[in-house]
Design a binder for these strands. Sequence first.
DNA 1: ATATTTTGGTTTATTTTATAAACTAATTTA
DNA 2: TAAATTAGTTTATAAAATAAACCAAAATAT
Lengths: 95, 95
Amino acid sequence: MFSDLDPLLHSQLRLGIMSLLMSVEYAEFTFLKEKTNSTAGNLSVQLDKLSVAGYISIEKSFKGKKPLTTCTVTKKGIKAFEEYVNALKQYIKQP
Amino acid sequence: MFSDLDPLLHSQLRLGIMSLLMSVEYAEFTFLKEKTNSTAGNLSVQLDKLSVAGYISIEKSFKGKKPLTTCTVTKKGIKAFEEYVNALKQYIKQP
DNA sequence: ATATTTTGGTTTATTTTATAAACTAATTTA
DNA sequence: TAAATTAGTTTATAAAATAAACCAAAATAT
């Protein structure tokens, strides 16, 4: 009846992050923080989970002398997102 | 950017329950249990939450001598579901 | 010059949720 | 009549989300 929803994507913040990353080439920590309206702590944790899962890749560098965290979605992440969206559609298709 | 997702609906099982109830006039506990592939305990808990929120109404009666739990979605539940779906679309609309 | 605030985060603790396990009571079935 | 099934509820545990506390460097104000 209903396919399972990837628990990694079925989270408002992580879904928001992935949604943004699907539409841009890369995104900085501060950009994601602003767009998703999240706290730095929460964002940091959730980015890490997505990264550990292989859905995004995170690069840490410096802009001048300030830390700079840059994220991109991976192939695996794109596939997972697409599958999630398809599964979700079963739940929200209205009669 | 992203609207908040009603946390009561942003749960696989509760969303499945609501999705089913949106498409039928009423549903029995056992029907929901089978269709959502959930355990009785989990279903019982989540139905209760939806009921406390006023999203569904639950009627407990007897079929012969066996307990019979029947659920229907309320007006409030329908509105919440529709709003949830609209909010969700912001997250999953693909480029 | 030096305190104070801001930036860009991470780590750890707390709260909330979801899920599973254990239980109840009545009912079939063997 | 003992064992298993049905239809659930309650309680305990595991997992997740969030918030709070913290850190180091840089920018700003005094």
